[in-house]
Design a protein around this nucleic acid. Structure first.
Lengths: 211, 211
DNA sequence: GTCTATAGTGCGATAGAC
DNA sequence: GTCTATCGCACTATAGAC
C-alpha cells in the first residue's frame, strides 16, 4: 500500500497537495490551462474561444489566466524554453573548432531528438489549431525567431562572427521549421532527425549547385 | 499671386481637391494615415498611440482608420505588395533552366534595387518603431514569411520541387532580411544589392565549409 | 456611424505556505 | 512577519457586428 502512495506522489503533484493539506488552489494551474485551451481551440476554434471560457474550464478566473499568460495566444506556446535549450545543448555539444555548418548540424540533431515519436500526435493537434489562425502563425514565427537569436548568440560565443553567425543561425531555424512541418504531415513516419538531415543536405546542394 | 496658388497646388493634393471640387472626403487618406501613424509612433511609442489619435491627426474617425487597416499594426506595413512583387519580378527574370541559387540571386538583386538610397532614411525611422515593439516585430516576420511563400510558389512553377523550393525560398527571405538590417544600420553606406550579394556569398561558404 | 464584446491592465484584498 | 497565487472589480482600447 505504501508503494501505491509513492507511485501517486511521483506521478501527480496535485494529488500530493490534496493529501497533505487542504490547499486553497490546485497546483499546476498553468499546465491545466494550456491543456484546456488546446482542447477548446480544437473544437470551437481560437477566436470563438474566450479567455474566460478557458479559465472557467479549469476553475479559475479570467484574471488568473492572464497572470499566467501575457496574452491569449501565448497559452499555445508554453514550454518553448526547453525546446530552445535543446538547440543550444546541441550547439554546445559540437567540438571546439567545429565549422558553423557542423554546429548547426549538431543543434538540429539535438532538437530533432527532443521531438520523439510520443510527441508527434500532440504536435499535429497543436499545429492544426495554429494553421487555422494567422495570429497564431505570427506568434509561431516569433518563437522561431527567438531560436535563431539564441543560436546566433551561441555561434558568436564560439568566435564565429556576423554575418556568418546570423546566416548559420537563421539556417538552423529554417531547416528545422521545414523538417518539422514535414514530420507532422499526414502519413509521415520518419523520425524528425532523419528529415532534418535530409533538409540540411538540401541546403548544401542549393548552395553548391550554381558553381 | 497666381504663382503662389500654383505652388500650393503642386505641394498639396488635398488643396487641389478643395479648390477644384467640393469633394466629400480628401483623397490619399490611407497614405496620410500611414504617415501620421509613423510620426506618432516615433514620438509617443506604438502602444501609447491610439488608433483614434492617428485618425484625429488626419481628420477622420477611428472607424475610417479600421476601414483602411485591418488592425493597428498594419498601418506600418502598407505597400508591401509592391516589394513582394520585386522579388517575383527578379525570380521571373532568371533564364529558363536557372538553378535555384541563380533564381534566388536574381530575386535578391531585384528586391535590393527596389530599396534605393532615397528610401534608406524612411526605412530607418520605420525600423526604429518596429524594433521597439515585439508585436510589430511579429507582424514584420509575418510579412517576411509571405515573401518566402511567394518565392516558393515561383520556384515550384519553375519545376523546382520541395524541399529544394522551400529551402531556396526561405533562404531568399533570410538573406534579404540580414542584408536589410545591415543596410539600415548606423554608418552603413553600401547599397542594399551589394550587401545582399555579400550575405548570399556567406550562405555559400556556410554550406561548403564542412565538406 | 453606433453599439458592443473581448482582450488585456492596474490595484487592493485575501488566504495559505513558509 | 514575507511571499505567492488568487480573486474581484474597474477600466481602456481594439476590433467586429449591426
Amino acid at each position: 500500500m505504501s508503494v501505491t502512495v509513492i507511485t501517486v506522489r511521483l506521478t501527480s503533484v496535485a494529488v500530493i497537495t490534496t493529501l497533505v493539506a487542504m490547499a486553497r488552489w490546485e497546483p499546476g494551474t498553468r499546465e491545466r490551462l494550456a491543456r484546456a485551451a488546446l482542447e477548446l481551440f480544437t473544437t470551437r476554434g481560437f477566436e470563438q474561444t474566450t479567455a474566460a471560457e478557458i479559465a472557467e474550464a479549469v476553475g479559475v478566473t479570467e484574471r488568473t489566466f492572464f497572470r499566467h499568460f501575457a496574452d491569449k495566444r501565448e497559452v499555445l506556446f508554453d514550454g518553448q524554453e526547453r525546446y530552445r535549450q535543446a538547440f543550444l545543448d546541441g550547439a554546445a555539444a559540437a567540438p571546439p573548432g567545429a565549422t558553423p555548418f557542423e554546429v548547426v548540424a549538431s543543434a538540429l540533431r539535438s532538437a530533432g531528438a527532443f521531438f520523439g515519436e510520443e510527441r508527434r500526435a500532440f504536435a499535429r493537434a497543436r499545429q492544426a489549431v495554429i494553421d487555422a489562425n494567422p495570429a497564431l502563425q505570427e506568434r509561431e514565427r516569433h518563437k522561431r525567431a527567438t531560436v535563431a537569436a539564441a543560436m546566433r548568440g551561441a555561434l558568436l560565443d564560439r568566435g564565429i562572427a556576423d554575418p556568418a553567425a546570423a546566416v548559420a543561425a537563421e539556417t538552423t531555424s529554417t531547416v528545422f521549421s521545414i523538417a518539422f512541418q514535414q514530420w507532422i504531415s499526414p502519413g509521415e513516419t520518419r523520425p524528425l532527425t532523419q528529415i532534418a538531415d535530409a533538409v540540411l543536405a538540401e541546403v548544401r546542394s542549393f548552395a553548391g549547385a550554381a558553381s
